[in-house]
Design a protein around this nucleic acid. Structure first.
Lengths: 207, 207
DNA sequence: ACTAGTTTAGGACATTGACCAAATTTACAT
DNA sequence: ATGTAAATTTGGTCAATGTCCTAAACTAGT
């Protein structure tokens, strides 16, 4: 991706985050960038291509967080989730239009269902398994484990959608700690003594 | 609402559920109903009006469930949630476009933020409080209670959105039991012995 | 038969994403 | 400096969307 493409998708992300992907037209974006539509489509033939490139940047930054932060304890895990939340905030337009995108943008849909989803899920299963091994978490049955993983995924995907129901897109950041606390509490019932300590530490550092 | 309006919104709901609100045009809907667009706009001046009338039907059917099913025990509560889930499925188009609608449809936004949201939340707080009084649930601190309520709300609002990421709109029904089990497990750590019995019973009846 | 409500017919408008071709400008390598 | 390729502008077109309009025709109840 060259400099102009970077410039375009950077500004596009800003506008998309402000108003929502569906409500920023290509003409509007071009005007904002001080360029003609023809030039925009020179770099991104369709709007879907543009959004896809943004979604790839999001996926990559998420992958980076995952690879750079091995989860050794429950605090690590929660802290990693904080970074993931912050990253989600940076790309809020994607998370807020997820259903939309997955049904309409064939590039994103194919990519997500072909790679991202499985990787995410298996990564999460791995992390939780490790925390169980290292005695930070303890599940009384396999069911508990699987359902807490599901709950966790759902919350990660849609906390921003819920947040936007009460506050505008411009003020989502300040709701983040609430949802991080929520996530921490989700694991509370399954935490060992060691695990509880990590949760307390994480929650304590949130304010 | 007269017979023709009923006919229109009934068919509109079907099409919206199948394809998504944003992807069914007014012309398409009119053609499907064998009427002219002019006639459609005679009954519903704008698409927003049509969607709003559907959303009101949804809100009313939900309110009906709430008023007809007093929550005496945890089983009642979970069973009520099952009915609410089934109702959400009937109006899936609304839940799948929630963010969209709340930001664009001024009628829905005003109504939701003015009434629905508070009622829903206070109703839930009331139910949970009752279950605590009647010794089905026990929370070690107020925090746990509030955060479980938040988790529960988020899951109720967005389970369909999550479901549609793995299956098409046409096949959402069969994922419902999974999310109901998830909901039941959400309350498990806070259930008393009595409460656990109710959960077992509810989950047992799901399959 | 009159009237109000309903329905049709045939348009219009601005906006959207997308697509296109020709001309011009810019940057870089020879 | 010159030629070439990439980048950019200009000025459209296209179909589809939601919304809006008017005049005419049909239909039901009084």
């Amino acid at each position: 991706m060259n400099a102009t493409q970077e410039k375009i998708s950077k500004r596009a992300l800003e506008l998309f985050n402000l108003k929502g992907i569906e409500y920023v037209g290509m003409r509007e974006l071009a005007a904002d960038l001080g360029m003609r539509i023809g030039n925009l489509t020179y770099y991104f033939p369709t709007k879907d291509d543009l959004v896809f490139s943004i979604s790839q940047a999001y996926t990559e930054s998420n992958s980076k967080i995952h690879s750079e932060l091995p989860v050794k304890n429950l605090y690590d895990f929660l802290h990693k989730n904080k970074l993931l939340f912050e990253n989600g905030l940076k790309y809020q337009c994607l998370l807020l239009s997820m259903v939309h995108l997955m049904e309409q943008n064939t590039l994103i849909a194919a990519n997500y269902q072909g790679n991202v989803m499985q990787n995410r899920m298996s990564g999460l299963v791995y992390d939780i398994g490790l925390l169980e091994e290292n005695k930070y978490l303890k599940f009384s049955c396999e069911d508990d484990k699987l359902l807490i993983i599901s709950s966790n995924s759902l919350q990660s995907r849609f906390w921003l959608s819920e947040a936007v129901l009460t506050e505008s897109r411009q003020n989502l950041a300040r709701q983040m700690t609430h949802y991080l606390r929520m996530k921490a509490h989700l694991f509370r019932p399954y935490a060992t003594k060691k695990g509880l300590g990590d949760i307390e530490r994480f929650v304590g550092e949130l304010l």
